[in-house]
Computed example of a mutant assay.
Amino acid sequence: MTTSTDSYRRDLVLALRMGNVPPDRIGEIVAEVESHVADTGESPVEAFGPPREYAAGFARPRRAGDVVSLLVLTGFGAACGWLLATGVVGTVRGETFLGFPAWTALVLGALLWIPPLLASVRRNASIRDPRTGGFLAPPPAAVVLTMSGFLALLTLGLWVGTVLAG
């Protein structure tokens, strides 16, 4: 498989995910594209067109509940960030948070991180190649580690910045 095919696959998987296509169907579509390219020698763009345009033919409309869920999860993420920043700054300065020790804001922020994390894992369900059973996209464990690592680095950065600011 060439780099252009790899790039096309990544872009196609992303476009299909954004189009609300189920993971099993994404695997089938990508397998069809790769098989066709391997059999004919054509580039994927020649055979199927740009990834976004090709994926648009498979897109499913989002339900109203999906939009509400996204807004709620965005609110959770914003509250999580605010609580973490408040907790780090308050802990370093020895302040309180609503009459409680500042570290309680850190705990609340970490708890508010769980719903967006679980939603991301669900949304990024494994996409498997129906021909081999291997992963076409990172499995959910990679998503959890990436998001949790980002949260840990953000919190550490806030703490270090607050300590240095004094």
Rank of each mutant, 00 (worst) to 15 (best):
P140G: 03
W103G: 00
L111I: 08
L118R: 14
P22R: 00
Y8I: 02
S69I: 06
F100P: 10
R52L: 15
R63M: 12
R9L: 05
R122D: 07
L164Y: 08
R25L: 09
V30Y: 01
S126W: 11
D24T: 05
T162F: 00
G19M: 00
L70N: 11
T132F: 06
V30P: 01
R123Y: 06
V88F: 13
V92G: 04
D39Q: 14
G134F: 11
D11I: 00
F58N: 04
F100K: 05
T40S: 08
P50C: 13
T5I: 15
P115M: 04
G109Y: 05
G134E: 15
D129S: 13
L164Q: 08
S69H: 12
S126L: 10
W159S: 06
V107G: 03
L117S: 05
V143F: 12
E32K: 02
L117Y: 04
A119Q: 11
P51L: 09
R123T: 08
V67I: 13
V88A: 15
W103L: 09
T155E: 10
T2K: 04
P101G: 05
F76C: 15
R52F: 15
A141I: 10
L151W: 14
V37F: 03
T132N: 04
S4H: 02
L98I: 06
W113C: 06
W82N: 14
L145E: 09
I127G: 11
E53Y: 14
R52C: 00
A55D: 02
